[in-house]
Design a protein around this nucleic acid. Sequence first.
DNA 1: GTTGACATTAACATCATGGGAAGGTTAAAC
DNA 2: GTTTAACCTTCCCATGATGTTAATGTCAAC
Lengths: 133, 133
Amino acid sequence: MNIGRASQESGVSAKMIRHYEAIGLMARARRTDGGYRIYSANDIHTLQFIRRARELGFSMKQIERLLGLWRNRRRASADVRRVAQQHIDDLQARIEKLESMRRSLQQLVQHCHGDDRPDCPILDDLAGEVSWQ
Amino acid sequence: MNIGRASQESGVSAKMIRHYEAIGLMARARRTDGGYRIYSANDIHTLQFIRRARELGFSMKQIERLLGLWRNRRRASADVRRVAQQHIDDLQARIEKLESMRRSLQQLVQHCHGDDRPDCPILDDLAGEVSWQ
DNA sequence: GTTGACATTAACATCATGGGAAGGTTAAAC
DNA sequence: GTTTAACCTTCCCATGATGTTAATGTCAAC
């Protein structure tokens, strides 16, 4: 199976498949005489694993760790859960940061006339003047 | 005022002050005979504006637009509000994406024993097998 | 054997920020 | 007046995951 086919089957772009190889996330692929990469059903499964992990927002480093645990039949599920829980905490922190931004902006927007006049609490806030309260 | 002082006063790193100049967000700074950049109180105010806008998550492009509106005394507050509302929508979309990830992961983590045993619904999910429901 | 589809590598872009190196300037202490 | 420390300058590289483009080479079907 060449890289185009592997890309279709796994849902990972050819570009990213090469990238995963370059950063050592996947083993170097076997090649045809002409230099084309060759993939097996097993490789597709790995690529699907990576894709799903990316969909859940895991970083490449975490995915490397998860792949290692996946391949190790003597893993402890506690180790897997620890990685996942860490990621949940990361996500939560990012969500809170974004929500704090959104709340602040929502406040400002609510107090902005939004018409032809120039005075605007949003600009006032950015300029360091708190005008609307 | 040199760049170090401007950095302290504005809370923007010297590195970023130079960067904002390089990308055209700030006008080219005047220089001493020795080539050092010189900043005025007005420049500091602009830098603080940028910093606050970054804290609220605006992109450089949006900040460029906001700076333009800030400087234009004949602006319409509606234009400012439009930029802000767009950003709120962006934030909301990003939040929802992260929350969806968090919810999925939370599900998986809740069903993982998290002990010495190897079987783990998190890995099963990543591998494309849905084991816990 | 030609041709069209696909592969290869490499370089560059994104976005905002940081790190470091090699060298020049300033200002204060002596 | 010189030394020295702190600061500044530019330039290059790195992040993280992904995309784009370009120049060139291979495969497979006809």
